[in-house]
Computed example of a mutant assay.
Amino acid sequence: MGPGSDGLWSIGELAEHAGTTVKTVRFYSDSGLLPERARSAGGHRRYAPDALDRLRLIRSLRGLGLPVPEVRRVVDERAGAQGVLEDAVAGQLRTLGTRLSALRWQEAALHLVHACPPEERADRLRLVGSLGTPPSTAPLAGFWRAWLPPRMPAASRRAFLEAAVPQPPDMPDPAQVLAFARLCALVSRPCDGTAAPTQPAAHRAAGARESALLYAGLAEAYELAARQMRTGAGPADGEALDCFVATYARVAGCRDTTGFRRLLAVQLTADPRLDGYWALVAELITAPGGAPEPTPGTAHDWLLAALDGQLAA
């Protein structure tokens, strides 16, 4: 069926050519996605033949799940064709990725609650039920921001948070859901006024420059230690330990001597421990059945053990 004597199609004819319903065409017209060319004497909508290609494009985009505002950006000639479709598709991929991640977290959390002993189910449900899906890292980042030196430069703070705050996996297993829930519960516990200072001594004395030097040097030392740990090597002398000690010596304005190393070992041993946090991080980032992945906390312990072993020898 071709256009009428005026070269235009009725809404029914356009729907028939597109293989859809009049109701669908009317919806897109009312939404401003499919402008009509004219109205008949009786007030009926009339469409130009090129509306068929536009309607097919609209249906294709909607079939991919793009919301109406994004479809309008793509089909509207005033938006320009350059990059508009690519941006819309990329945005939809990000949206779907978030939704899929949320569903995977919900599924793993349900398996976790379903598989636990009945007497533990209520507590576990409260623990994992407080998480969003996918969960937010804001509680963990907030904990570390309060823990870090207050005058620490913003760039150094961001670099530390990237290393200390684990990102929730996109496809978690139930054990990882439990580890992340416990992490959030751990950092959310209220502190009473009688608790010991949570910051290491080096942090409390560090200014902006010193804290930047401290964390840049420690990041390098932890990475060097992590390489050794991944091979199964035990704590030992070497480049990682030298970098670790040199960082503290530089911040303290001291030379790296045996005496300094003895004082450093005593100080680090007396510093507050966050072992529970790093143990949960290791559970979260380690692949099921794989060897434990090093964390800044476990790398620190490896280096401290290496320092103790060197001094004992």
Rank of each mutant, 00 (worst) to 15 (best):
T198F: 00
L100P: 10
E162W: 10
R182A: 06
Q176K: 12
A249M: 10
A201F: 01
V113Q: 12
D301P: 09
D30Y: 06
A299M: 04
T286C: 06
P69G: 12
L214V: 04
Q176Y: 06
L52Q: 06
L57E: 15
R227A: 15
D308A: 11
T247M: 05
D271Q: 02
G80E: 12
S31D: 13
G91P: 08
S60N: 09
A236P: 09
Y215K: 00
D6P: 10
D53N: 07
A90M: 13
L303W: 12
A279F: 04
S130A: 14
R204I: 01
K23C: 04
D50E: 06
R78G: 12
P294K: 05
L34A: 06
L280K: 01
E239M: 02
S5I: 07
Q310W: 02
E13Q: 15
F244H: 11
P118E: 15
D87I: 06
S188V: 02
P174T: 12
M1N: 06
G129K: 03
P139A: 12
P166D: 02
A252H: 10
W147D: 00
A299G: 05
L112Q: 08
T137H: 02
L14H: 07
L303A: 11
A202E: 01
Y47I: 12
R56K: 13
A195V: 11
P3R: 11
L264N: 02
A102D: 15
P153Q: 09
P294A: 05
A185Y: 01
L34E: 08
E283Q: 14
G290R: 04
A154V: 12
P272N: 03
Y222G: 07
A291F: 09
L64S: 10
T198G: 00
P3N: 06
A175G: 14
R104A: 14
D301S: 14
A208Q: 11
A252V: 05
A141K: 00
A88N: 14
L224A: 15
P153K: 13
S40A: 05
G65A: 03
P288D: 05
G234D: 07
L161E: 07
A79E: 15
V187S: 00
A265C: 13
R45C: 08
